[in-house]
Design a binder for these strands. Structure first.
Lengths: 338, 338
DNA sequence: CTGTTAGCGCGTTCAG
DNA sequence: CTGAACGCGCTAACAG
């Protein structure tokens, strides 16, 4: 590593000296706030450019007592759902020159709180998170940090949120199956009290009820969060309960259900129909395509960032909960009941 | 938003006062560096806890003249390749309490440089990037910032790098096709001078040569970076050149090739074999599965972060270029030539 | 072992 | 329109 002149970073004082002014004038010229004679400004800007001046964000943050960093905490960046969410957030923030720092929490409440502390330390004015518990949001809010909860809504303190209409989406999906004549519809869900899972279950039950189909709890399986080993249990359900349709409440469970069906040589939709909540690329590519409740993931990210930015502008607005409508993409995996 | 007591953040001075010591003693107690009597320390820690003290990262950064933020710049977080890379980096950094700030650059050199400036402003000690040009790396290095280039290696200044063995991977893939009797093998690549694309093309040509098959430039298509509209051109190639196999040099081109094949009702591998560089989930799920050169994406991210951390420890090490071996996953999409 | 002093780089008074 | 002075919160030196 021969490079690295290690020359200590140039400061406002340096460029002030180079231009023969005081540091305060240099500050005004660079930040563009406050009066400064045109010719002096030009001289200063030229000097800054020539010396390769880069403002020190920490000094600014220290002075302003707030940074331009927005914290984002998701369960798992490797999951395409969270990745697209993050992509939407990042794009929106970058347009207005905010930076996104991402922390993962593995769906663990303690790690989520640790992430919140980190963002407090960074003096982030706002945080976007897919909540795992209520502690992190409460902590952040109690320090005056704006919070937007995404995907799920758990907060017991005032904060904004952007969520999908889980109940509506699940109802539509279940009704599609009911209208195709299915009566034994398995539900694969997650065992949490999160609004996502609760909403999807609720929608499922509502659809059954409106079609006067009894709720059979043997057809409902609930897994730990992000359970990578759900396939065996799903397989057992297929063997023992012989559902004619399966509704998987997230993309991971859908994938494992799909493998379980294939493993058994069960034909989709001939033997069993399959519907997924949350559309991901492979669902369009397999044969037959998987009918899915598509969430506008990228848009959710964008919207969350917008809500946060608005909140930073006007802290006293009423908390807003935006409920985005998912759309049911009917593909080949749903057919009439055998 | 009734919450937000807006009480100004508690500082070391506050907890020092609460415990009846001086700020420096408080500092030593909290940071754990320097002598401090056990009972005094306990008193201090208790006070910090009680008052909800959160250290101010900016003040520390200002003092230390370096932060615990590592910059990461990728082309597009929405692409699963970059997302998994980021996931690997984030996980590794979090273990040692560094934060990752991600910026996207849409494969644009100017945006990449802008990202670099942002990281300079944040006094990030290191940056990991999938380089688009040489300017950003040069700028960062000239300010003494450690840089690890990932996926591609463009730097003309000393820096570490983690790349896939593109040439070897492409050679293996092409040889598989040649051994299956294919002679008209189309190559879908990207029109850059990046080592990824150059390496893959080189591997393709090397394989052809070793099998004494002439290189036919009509079979080679090169697209703009992240071209979402490649499908039509691919379709035309299929129509006009009738290749018996297609080697797509990245996951996006593979996806578009796959759709183009399906659109024409061409059977895989009966009519045309397909191989992809970069394995993504759908390739295992479609029928037949797509033979792919799998990169250890997550591991590349981890390795890049490790290399960076090592460099921060020992700045004077020789620049290291790690070349990770991809593995060829043979699935159903490759068959004997018609 | 502890307190005092000083300064990291910037922006914001407040005089001039 | 400009500069001098101060302080944001923390920590490294240096006395004590």
């Amino acid at each position: 590593m021969t490079q690295a002149p290690e020359k200590k970073p140039v400061t406002l004082a340096d460029i002030a000296r180079a231009a023969g002014t005081s540091p305060s004038t240099a500050s005004r010229a660079i930040s563009g706030r406050g009066y400064v004679a045109a010719d002096v400004r030009d001289r200063l800007l030229e000097a800054a450019d020539r010396l390769g001046y880069v403002p020190n964000a920490s000094a600014r943050t220290l002075k302003h007592r707030t940074s331009r960093v927005i914290g984002v905490v998701v369960s798992d960046l490797g999951n395409p759902f969270y990745a697209r969410l993050a992509a939407g957030i990042e794009q929106t923030l970058r347009e207005v020159d905010y930076q996104m720092v991402i922390l993962g929490d593995n769906s663990d409440g303690d790690e989520e709180v640790a992430a919140a502390r980190t963002f407090l330390a960074m003096r982030a004015p706002g945080v976007i998170l897919t909540p795992v518990g209520t502690a992190a949001t409460r902590l952040l809010r109690s320090h005056g940090v704006a919070v937007v909860e995404v995907d799920r809504l758990l907060a017991n303190v005032p904060c904004d949120a952007v969520v999908t209409d889980n109940e509506g989406g699940a109802r539509d999906a279940t009704e599609l199956l009911l209208e195709l004549g299915h009566r034994r519809i398995a539900l694969l869900g997650v065992a949490t009290t999160w609004t996502t899972d609760a909403g999807r279950l609720k929608g499922y039950r509502a659809a059954l009820k409106s079609h006067r189909v009894a709720y059979d709890k043997n057809l409902v399986l609930r897994f730990p969060v992000h359970d990578g080993n759900a396939q065996a249990r799903i397989g057992r359900l297929l063997d023992e309960e012989a559902p004619t349709a399966v509704f998987a409440a997230n993309n991971q469970l859908a994938q494992q259900a799909w493998f379980a069906l294939r493993e058994r040589g069960l034909h989709i939709p001939g033997d069993v129909s399959l519907v997924a909540f949350d559309d991901v690329p492979w669902m369009e590519m397999v044969e037959p395509g998987i009918t899915a409740v598509a969430q506008p993931t990228f848009a959710i990210g964008r919207r969350a960032a917008q809500l946060l930015l608005r909140r930073l502008d006007e802290p006293d607005l009423e908390p807003a909960v935006e409920r985005l409508e998912p759309s049911l993409l009917v593909r080949g995996s749903t057919g009439t009941a055998p």
